[in-house]
Computed example of a mutant assay.
Amino acid sequence: MTKHLLILGAGFSGRAIGDVFRQAGLTVSGTTRSEDKAGALRRRGIEPIVYDGGTISGALAADMARTTHLVQSIAPGRDGDPLFRAGMPAIPALMPRLEWAGYLSTVGVYGDHKGGWVDEETVLNPVSARSVERVEAEGCWLGLGKASGVPVAVLRLAGIYGPGRNALRNMEEGTARRLIKKDQVFNRIRVEDIGRSALFLAERHLGGVWNITDDEPGPPQDVVGEAARLMGLPCPPDIPFETAELSPMARSFYGENKRVSNAKLKAAGFEFRFPNYRLSLAELHGSGRWKG
């Protein structure tokens, strides 16, 4: 019987995961909040199912019944993960054929480490409310893995970019900014490597916690500078972080400073196609795929 991947929340990362699972021979479906976005998923080879994170429709229940692989990327919110809310049927009952599940989380669960290194064994210290919610959801999914015997992998994602969402496009649109905060670094990950890492873990039936990030945490302004160089455009002026106009969410990202290790994933045998932003931006620029 054909293996089937269900993506709950087929957004930027979910679609990239769907692409690599389809290439590996699985059928793929994905949920979207509106019928308006269903056509785009269908054109990509992902069968769309409208789902707002609330009641499970008959169509979604039928799809769950044939699901062998699951990726959950819907943010939990104050009510917790949608599949673990009160009154929701147990996941083994909804998905009796499930062989592997992946939960997309964030490196934000580590909180601030003043530029120090963290790995999967680091004690979590989430700062923002959204990261606290992610820690709770991670616990639910890891608990499911222990209780059911199904491998459940928590993928802690760094800052995501790729075709259509990157510093090259920001440069062209005039939105790129070089915010300067002393010693600030961020991790990042190319979206295709999220897809490839999910398939890597699924094919090996690996559960547990995994940092999904490239090799090189670094200052965000350096990425903007490299994009400007590739585009042959003037580098945007430096803006001191203290005086920059930022949304509360954007400012909160700068309240966390850490270097996230991917050593566990590489030790398991995974090879990044885009191990750093310079190689990745060069590929996006050279291929023209930066436009999306």
Rank of each mutant, 00 (worst) to 15 (best):
R97I: 05
M1C: 14
F186P: 03
L8P: 02
L230A: 06
E120M: 09
G145P: 05
P219E: 12
K114W: 07
R44A: 14
I56H: 08
G54T: 09
E256S: 13
T67E: 01
V123W: 08
A268N: 03
A282H: 11
G116V: 02
E47A: 14
R169W: 02
A153K: 09
S73E: 10
R273Y: 15
D222S: 11
M88P: 12
R15W: 07
P151N: 08
R43W: 07
A61C: 05
Y277T: 05
I239C: 01
M64E: 00
F84I: 03
G139C: 07
R33N: 10
T68N: 00
A268R: 08
D19L: 11
L142C: 04
E192F: 02
P126N: 10
A137I: 04
T106E: 03
D112K: 09
R273E: 15
S13Y: 10
C140D: 15
S287V: 04
G9E: 07
V260T: 14
A62S: 08
V185D: 07
A263L: 10
Q72A: 04
L246K: 11
G255N: 13
S261P: 00
E226H: 15
G53R: 13
V150R: 07
V154T: 02
P248T: 12
Y161Q: 11
R165F: 03
H113Q: 14
G30N: 02
L230Q: 07
A263S: 07
G115N: 06
G77K: 01
E173S: 10
F270G: 07
G54Y: 01
R43L: 06
S105E: 03
I49G: 03
A38W: 10
G232P: 08
A75C: 00
Y277H: 13
M64D: 01
L206R: 08
E172Y: 03
G286R: 12
L230F: 11
D19I: 10
A75H: 02
K146C: 03
Y254N: 02
E245N: 08
A250C: 10
L26Q: 09
L60N: 08
L98Y: 06
K114A: 15
I160G: 01
R134E: 13
V118K: 05
I7C: 06
G174L: 07
V20H: 10
K146N: 12
S73Q: 02
P240G: 05
V209A: 15
R43V: 00
G80N: 08
R97M: 03
V50C: 06
I17N: 01
G162T: 06
G30P: 04
Y51Q: 10
